[in-house]
Design a protein around this nucleic acid. Structure first.
Lengths: 191, 191
DNA sequence: AAAAATCTACCTACTAGATGGTAGCCATAA
DNA sequence: TTATGGCTACCATCTAGTAGGTAGATTTTT
């Protein structure tokens, strides 16, 4: 037996990340999953409920990925690079970041949803801040660097690069930006 | 007598930048400008026509701003910073970049529109590339820096910071990111 | 173990309102 | 007199969401 709820979440995420939140409808989703529009309401009472579930699932996946990076990568420099790689699949699949897509439509978003998205980004910034501070201490990153400000810069650059390179140059463009970003964090080479 | 067309463009831009392209309707716009929905079609036959005009106007304003920067700022470092400042009003007014907003909904956008948006970003990247190359030559920027890759990085960072800080920390957050970005482009300080 | 009650996951059919867009009319200004 | 820029009144389609029903599985009661 199939897990309709999971299928709905998976397909809805793809639709939202490709067309925006108001650009996607229960009608589209119903067709994609081959059930009737009304049946979606059985799993997600309102569109907002669905969006909240979407963000929760997305957030959980990132939580797992961030933990995995800490477990497998030893130094800060490679942790940041691994973090950047997380965005790469989005570029390759032509899908924007779910939370960026939602953030764009801020003015029309229900407050709960907006709060969840803000929390998503805050979490990433806090994680990066810790990693960056560690890198300053162990010498794998430029010593003078401001962890708090640089964390924001990293998220901004990657979100922007995903948005931009999905439209323009694809994964090659994204990879190039990620390289330049990582270089700018390393200690200056002498000579 | 009032210039309805200009009013329509101005209000539509605000609406789109705040709520996304599919999140905005002729109905909203009609109410904002206090004319009937059908009358908008007299000025912009279809929603796509309106979007194209919106992008054209936005693009023209940036053209003027970029030219003004070249005319008033002498060195590359301050040109880049001035370019970054252009995004600041967006953060302050709580409005995303028009072309970023449209790019988010890529999958549903008419081809002409998508092409115009791509051209908008390509133009910025090309402008930055020239400025960055100049800065390497005149010594106001880090000598080793790759102008082409760094131009993409700059646009990505600013677009991302606008998206992020509109949601999170407002203009303070944006300013901090802009500072860190500019610092990373300058020649490394010795000592 | 059989029968009864409840729950799950879907369905058809519907609603009220919004959506982009059209047709055709009317006042005003060049 | 003719374009301009509005208007009312539509239209078909799509929107999220509701009402109510059904077949089948599960659980509870007898």
């Amino acid at each position: 037996m199939r897990d309709t709820r999971a299928e709905l979440l998976a397909r809805a995420e793809i639709l939202v990340r490709g067309r925006g939140y108001s650009g996607f409808s229960y009608g589209d989703l119903a067709e994609a999953v081959s059930i009737r529009k009304a049946s979606i309401h059985h799993h997600f009472r309102t569109k907002t409920d669905l969006a909240l579930a979407l963000v929760a699932a997305y957030d959980a996946r990132y939580d797992a990925a961030l933990a995995a990076i800490l477990a497998t990568k030893g130094d800060a420099a490679s942790r940041i690079e691994a973090y950047g790689q997380l965005y790469l699949t989005g570029v390759e699949d032509g899908l924007g970041c779910l939370c960026a897509v939602l953030a764009i439509e801020m003015d029309t978003l229900p407050d709960v949803l907006r709060a969840d998205i803000a929390r998503f980004f805050d979490k990433h910034i806090a994680w990066l801040e810790r990693v960056l501070a560690g890198g300053c201490a162990d010498g794998s990153l430029r010593p003078g660097l401001d962890p708090a400000a640089t964390a924001r810069l990293v998220v901004a650059t990657l979100e922007g690069a995903l948005l931009l390179e999905r439209l323009l140059a694809g994964s090659a463009g994204f990879r190039s930006t990620l390289m330049v970003l990582c270089d700018s964090l390393r200690p200056p080479r002498i000579g």
